[in-house]
Design a protein around this nucleic acid. Structure first.
Lengths: 336, 336
DNA sequence: TTGTAAGCGTTATCAC
DNA sequence: GTGATAACGCTTACAA
């Protein structure tokens, strides 16, 4: 099962190894006769170049290292698609490692990527702290995607949480809601900025912001909503940290005998395919995920090829996808 | 930004490069004094071994190449988790490439993996045909996961579709259903065996199987269900090819004014988190995804380390997760 | 226990 | 156009 090498091909084609190398990298300065001879030999042997040897000799890998915080989250999958498309276009390969929501594992993933000599790191939804990020960025250009804008030293691609939250609030206010609660993301890295954006938008509308701690999973909805019900403080609208949490909210409200959107309107965040499922039909803030992936690549390319050194911080504008989970409040702000 | 090499470390620690290598692979035959000297030098320099150089010298990579057919499908993510865990346990790394539902892209991914000298290929939900699979398996041990059992030459890990379909049918029959329709998976590679399992289970129960062509996405439900409604042939229960399709079914039934499970019971396949969302509450056949991933690794290990040569074909037993989308039929088999 | 040196499969720099 | 030959960074006999 030992694979053929350039020498094998060279011998079979009756040429030197260097010639084979030239053919493989389709150099113009090689005669047609030899070229076809080499290609034939290679095909016959099923020759595939050894990337390790090439990287070593070339002193570059044309490879990006991606780390996704959670392979299960559909939000990240779309970012990765954007990265892959853009990388491909520029002749770069992409290595994906799964952070598994675990900082320790993510740390090891960074190390693995660096050992593979990737030319840049793209961290999607990272759990690493600023020190670690800064350290990594000293070894290879590093960009973080979708993890809040405030990380000194590294490049960042984000979608503005303040604007996103305002989009949700304004939509609800326009429908006539005045009693709106935000269920926050708990420990999630984006929890704070999103909640801050909510508070700000509410105040701008002359309303008092109410924030209840929740989390970033479906299961985190229950405690929060139950608390609201028990305190008889159910609002006419709920703005959830993300789609998954919103899905949980939908469910708990239903069990409590409250109808969406008749009794309570619900807004999610991310606009993943969960929101898009017609059965959920969730109004949600949309982050331009693919675009974010593409920009991450572009940002890294600027570092590698045009050796930019000044940090980039791109903050994109989210949009709102309006669906069936929001409507005008039934009464004038009191729960039934 | 040029990174330190073993020579840099050796020089700094005042030893030979070979000694550094021994330390890095923590060989027992090196004095404590030199060991700490080397480790200190390495740490001070931020030394990271170059994996390409190592692979080249060692003539092995201790790496598996995974290709997932669709990074967006939550079913595959779980299989990958199982693979990662098992690989990790045996000191193997894992490289993930995304097939993107596109055979051409998957073909290139196989090639990339082979160029990286992976020691085995794990194809999750592949779209390649038997010829291509056989060809790949001649270069590196290859196992396919979750793509139907009939692929000569390569190892396979599957969950039995016949049993899975029977689980669904028997559950519905036990509830009293006699009029059950299967919406199949269209072009999906698992469509045929699953439909065959359905037909078989129905006949075993003395019932006539009805199969309607659909697909493997949410959007594929509409045409199929609309057809049933228009022909006034709506059954009391629908067994969908997968969860996504079932989600679509739920939605279309709802728009048509039919209640689940009162008017129609619905069963999905895969038991992804979509089924588990309480708002969907979908009864679904469950495949042991993690286990399948673990077994894939084990199967490859047997080839690599114990040089097994006989093909393995593991066919696991699915189970049924019963939820709110199934219940007894309202009437005696006629639609209202 | 440590060092020397050959070799892994490429690419790149020269001569020819 | 083509072919030697020296890197690339590491491992691994074999010597010392």
């Amino acid at each position: 099962m030992s694979r053929p090498t350039m020498d094998t091909v060279a011998e079979r084609a009756g040429v030197s190894r260097a010639l084979v190398s030239l053919v493989m990298n389709d150099s113009p300065k090689v005669s047609d006769a030899k070229r076809t001879a080499v290609l034939q030999a290679a095909a016959a042997l099923g020759y595939l170049p050894n990337l390790h040897a090439r990287s070593l000799a070339q002193q570059r890998t044309k490879t990006f290292g991606i780390i996704i915080n959670d392979i299960h989250n559909p939000f990240f999958a779309e970012v990765v698609s954007g990265i892959e498309a853009a990388a491909d276009e520029h002749g770069f390969s992409v290595l994906i490692l799964n952070g598994g929501r675990d900082p320790g594992r993510e740390r090891r993933a960074v190390e693995t990527h660096l050992q593979f000599q990737v030319e840049a790191l793209i961290l999607v939804g990272t759990r690493l702290d600023d020190d670690e990020l800064e350290q990594a960025s000293r070894v290879a250009p590093t960009v973080i995607v979708a993890s809040g804008p405030d990380h000194p030293g590294v490049d960042t691609i984000t979608a503005n949480d303040t604007i996103g939250a305002a989009l949700a609030v304004d939509h609800l206010v326009a429908l006539g809601h005045t009693d709106i609660v935000h269920l926050d993301g708990g420990d999630n890295i984006s929890s704070r900025p999103r909640a801050a954006g909510f508070a700000r938008a509410m105040r701008a509308a002359g309303l008092e912001p109410r924030v209840v701690r929740a989390g970033d999973g479906e299961a985190d909805a229950e405690a929060a909503v139950v608390q609201l019900v028990e305190e008889e403080a159910v609002p006419t609208a709920i703005f959830a940290f993300n789609d998954l949490l919103a899905a949980g909210v939908l469910d708990v409200l239903e069990s409590a005998g409250l109808r969406v959107p008749d009794d309570v309107s619900v807004v999610g965040y991310d606009n993943t395919f969960i929101a898009q499922l017609n059965h959920m039909s969730l109004t949600a803030v949309d982050q331009p995920r693919r675009k974010m992936g593409e920009l991450a690549v572009q940002t890294m390319l600027e570092r590698i090829e045009d050796n930019r050194t000044k940090p980039t911080n791109l903050d994109l504008a989210p949009t709102l996808a309006v669906r069936g989970s929001t409507g005008p409040p039934r009464h004038d702000g009191t729960t039934r």
